[in-house]
């Protein structure tokens, strides 16, 4: 029986947003009378995660993923519900808890902008009270895997986005956290870097038995890393289970996109699948998942094709399919 590391029960976070009526009169009115509206960012979510799991946390923009991670990290005070991470209540922000986890956000930086990354690392070493030897070994290892040894002495502001992201990851992992919250860690990275980072997350999970929650809008990340996914929508959990189950069960379609030689019209393609777009000889078709390769080869045989791509439907599409949204075929 593996240990439960993260447990949340009926978690809620409501934000009060001030609503201004449009126009000048609205502005004047709002001077003495303000209207507030409640945004239910997270609305009654429960789940448990055991040690060593990598869980993909997915949902559309504004679903409440980041908000949940912020509550798990103790940044936000929950409106209601219980959270337990490693036996602590995150909100108490106990040092003993903080030494055991890390939150990495794709666009947030903890590195000191005007100083070389190595300085921030030394600061973390001091703050997390990492012993000299352990620090040297960990840093050496991380810097080698992520290939950043020669940029550690350069002012962070002068690094490229990817280089900075790698340094951010190092800063977050120097204290070897047991629990890792990764919020869109691959955002803005090139495909090579995405791959490196994914592999790295995998290794980290294996080596430290770390428990990881990962959010991403790239299906690739989730597919490669997470056995289990939790899907949330509008603040509520709508799916919690094996990734294979969603893909097989809900993602019925794949997307074929290709560029045609001249002389083919939109009509010629109709029989192969649902045409999503056709413009300047560039076509996108939605085809049933199981027949995707078959159809692709038929098209390759029949037409003059310059390039061809088979893609999984996006996370958004899968989510919509789970909802059984009838319109999804038109939209993607």
């Amino acid at each position: 029986m593996k240990k439960t590391v993260i447990k949340i029960e009926n978690l809620k976070k409501y934000f009060k947003v001030y609503k201004k009526e449009p126009g000048l009169i609205g502005s004047i009115k709002s001077l003495w009378k303000r209207k507030y509206e409640t945004v239910k960012a997270v609305d009654d979510i429960s789940f448990e995660i055991t040690q060593g799991e990598i869980v993909g946390f997915i949902g559309q923009n504004g679903a409440g993923k980041t908000t949940t991670l912020k509550m798990l990290s103790g940044l936000l005070y929950p409106t209601a519900g219980k959270i337990d991470v490693l036996g602590f209540r995150p909100w108490d922000r106990k040092p003993a808890f903080q030494k055991q986890f890390s939150l990495v956000m794709g666009q947030k930086n903890q590195l000191w902008w005007d100083l070389p990354a190595i300085e921030s690392f030394y600061l973390n070493k001091a703050i997390y009270e990492i012993p000299d030897k352990e620090f040297d070994i960990t840093l050496e290892k991380l810097a080698t895997i992520l290939d950043v040894k020669d940029i550690l002495q350069i002012q962070v502001r002068k690094l490229s986005l990817g280089q900075r992201m790698k340094c951010e990851i190092i800063a977050a992992l120097l204290h070897s956290p047991k629990v890792l919250f990764l919020d869109e860690p691959t955002i803005g990275l090139d495909v090579v870097m995405q791959k490196i980072l994914r592999d790295f997350i995998k290794i980290y999970n294996k080596e430290f038995g770390a428990t990881i929650i990962l959010t991403s809008h790239y299906m690739g990340d989730v597919k490669e890393l997470c056995e289990r996914v939790i899907i949330i929508d509008k603040g509520s959990k709508i799916f919690d289970g094996k990734l294979d189950d969603i893909i097989n069960k809900y993602a019925r379609n794949k997307i074929l996109s290709f560029t045609l030689g001249n002389g083919t019209s939109e009509n010629d393609l109709k029989e192969y699948g649902e045409i999503k777009s056709f413009e300047n000889q560039r076509a996108t078709l939605i085809v049933p998942r199981i027949q995707a390769t078959q159809i692709a080869s038929k098209i390759l045989n029949k037409f003059k094709i310059i390039d061809l791509n088979i893609e999984e439907a996006s996370i958004e599409a899968v989510i919509r399919e789970i909802f059984g949204d009838k319109n999804n075929k038109q939209e993607k």
Binding site: G74, L75, P95, A96, Q98, K108, Q110, N124, I127, Y128
Partner: peptide, 9 residues
Amino acid sequence: ISNHLLKPF
């Protein structure tokens, strides 16, 4: 200040 709030400091 989130950065500071996350750390044992």
